[in-house]
Design a protein around this nucleic acid. Structure first.
Lengths: 123, 123
DNA sequence: CCGTATCCGCATCGATACTG
DNA sequence: CAGTATCGATGCGGATACGG
């Protein structure tokens, strides 16, 4: 029984990480920043996503209060998803990661190349 | 063939996301901010991690240039891992996520509770 | 059009054993 | 002590089919 390890289990970073680890969630969130969208519209834009994943992602996002779901009882059911203020703050924070990527990603790639070339020998 | 979708495939966010999606990597990175550590020392601290994962994580981190590996040819081989300046910048950025979590996580939890209680009816 | 349930392949992760 | 290779379980994720 090693449950209760002091280091990582309690830290909230884990929770956010788990949340943004879902690439679809981040993508959808970013997309919704440009305004509300309908289900299939979202599906078409992200495109690489399956209904299952989109549905699952949207539900998760809604549950977390990051996006809101509004259904219109029209003849062919219409549903609109929109980002919430809370979702905005997260999206904004995640954007910092995007900035980091744009700034340092080439350095990372360079290191990868070097490592790949033969880091074991060159040290 | 839908390869080449304009929205997400090109954006660098995906890459960072993939990187930090690995909770172990983030944890190790954060740990290394407190100074260099040896393999088993790291293993003991993170504890929930397996050798396989730690080894894999460390290798990935080293390959990306986020941590450096220094081996001492002593009788019982000694190896020290340390965070690099590049790794520092990423860790710092990830820290922003931690801050977000500490600030908004309770709001998220509250939403979850409400949703769980019966969001379908209350809407 | 919106969404859910099922089936199934695949990548991941943990546990174990063994080498330098 | 540091690290790799293999095996088996598990859960994620995609495609499909069907219901509201």
């Amino acid at each position: 029984m090693i449950i209760g390890d002091p280091y990582s289990r309690d830290c909230p970073t884990r929770k956010v990480l788990d949340r943004i680890a879902d690439k679809w969630a981040v993508l959808v969130l970013g997309l919704l920043m440009g305004g509300p969208m309908r289900f299939n519209q979202l599906r078409r834009t992200v495109d690489g996503i399956s209904q299952k994943m989109l549905s699952q992602t949207l539900k998760s996002l809604e549950r977390d209060g990051l996006v809101s779901r509004k259904a219109f009882a029209t003849v062919p059911v219409t549903v609109e998803y929109a980002i919430t203020p809370l979702g905005q703050t997260l999206a904004d924070t995640v954007d910092a990661l995007r900035v980091w990527a744009e700034t340092h990603m080439e350095a990372v790639t360079a290191h990868q190349q070097r490592y790949d070339a033969g880091a074991a020998s060159g040290a």
